[in-house]
Amino acid sequence: MPALFSLQSYLLLSAMLFVIGLIIVLTKNNAIQIIMGIELIFNAAAINFVAFSCFRPHLLDTLQMSGQVIAIFVIVVAAADACAALAIILSLFRVFKTTRIQNINRLKG
């Protein structure tokens, strides 16, 4: 498969996605927005897997699609993760009547 872009550009995209996700996680107030940031981070990782898988020169036949397979796994895990996280947020909302993460600070010493 002829490469339209080099590996570096894919990695750059992935890194940008990761950093955007990280900044969202670190700065946003709303818990749901933070979950969105986490999804971005997952996807950045998935892009990495696929990119490395494509650009590896001598690949065994059996392992040819392994990167893509892991990317699908990541999507599945991300979906499951979103489920669990949304459930947690729902129950948090029931207790605190808010999803503002700054107000949920009971777990301190």
Binding site: T27, Q102, N105, G109
Partner: peptide
Amino acid sequence: YAKIQNGQIQSYLRWIT
């Protein structure tokens, strides 16, 4: 040290990062 442990989950994350 008490200031570090403030219950703000994002501040923990910042430290980790």
